[in-house]
Nucleic acid binder design. Structure first.
Length: 206
DNA sequence: CACATGATCGCCT
DNA sequence: GGCGATCATGTGG
């Protein structure tokens, strides 16, 4: 018997993608423009498979990070280090980093291999009877699902343990736009309108 | 409700 | 050696 190498997700996040009419987008979905992907991911689902079951939530808040010209992005000024390396992967990969020594942040990599842009997943709505704000915040989203830096670099498109699902029918989500959170150091980029959120959701940070 | 603070550590300078 | 794409808790108005 081999022990699980990764933490158990919060059991209240269990859900069934098929029952909800969700499907998986292909590589092309993630290779599109980063702002478009960020908007498209509002209303999509982030999910993790653990012991054959799916755990996750409906994404309600995202931020686009635009690469070398974006002072708020880790890839600003062409920076390329082992930690950041997954940002340079092909669209549809996962980039996870640690902030403040204790919280993890999950990002969906966009564009093509070599172009270091990504979408930060800031908040999701927990399914079913789970507390609405269980995944409200990037750190809480990762904690709830049990996602950590060990998952950085995973391919979201192939048959892996972390995946993205989208509604088959285009959802009618009213999307709000604002500057990004927590990047006061980013100069002119700090006011860029790159945060997208579901206006109706109670899980969006305020 | 609006701040202010502490926790905690890998990464880059 | 400084600091951050955060969060929970505490204080005071």
């Amino acid at each position: 018997m081999i022990a699980d190498q990764r933490p158990r997700p919060d059991p209240r996040l269990a859900f069934d993608p098929r029952a909800l009419g969700l499907s998986e987008p292909g590589r092309a979905f993630f290779r599109r423009g980063t702002v478009l992907v960020a908007r498209s991911l509002v209303g999509a689902w982030i999910a993790r498979r653990w012991r054959g079951r799916w755990y996750g939530g409906r994404i309600v808040e995202t931020e686009a990070y635009l690469g070398p010209a974006d002072r708020a992005a880790h890839s600003w000024n062409g920076r390329r280090t082992p930690r950041i390396e997954p940002m340079y992967a092909d669209g549809g990969h996962l980039y996870v980093f640690l902030v403040y020594g204790m919280h993890h942040c999950a990002n969906v990599v966009t564009r093509r291999e070599g172009v270091a842009e990504a979408v930060l997943l800031r908040a999701a709505e927990a399914p079913g009877d789970a507390p609405a704000r269980l995944l409200a915040g990037p750190g809480k989203l990762c904690a709830g699902l049990g996602i950590s830096v060990r998952d950085s670099g995973l391919d979201l498109v192939s048959d892996g343990p972390v995946r993205i699902f989208v509604p088959r029918r285009r959802s009618r989500v009213r999307i709000g736009v604002s500057p990004r959170i927590g990047i006061d150091y980013a100069g002119d980029a700090k006011v860029w309108p790159l945060r997208f959120f579901d206006i109706q959701s109670a899980a969006v940070s305020r």
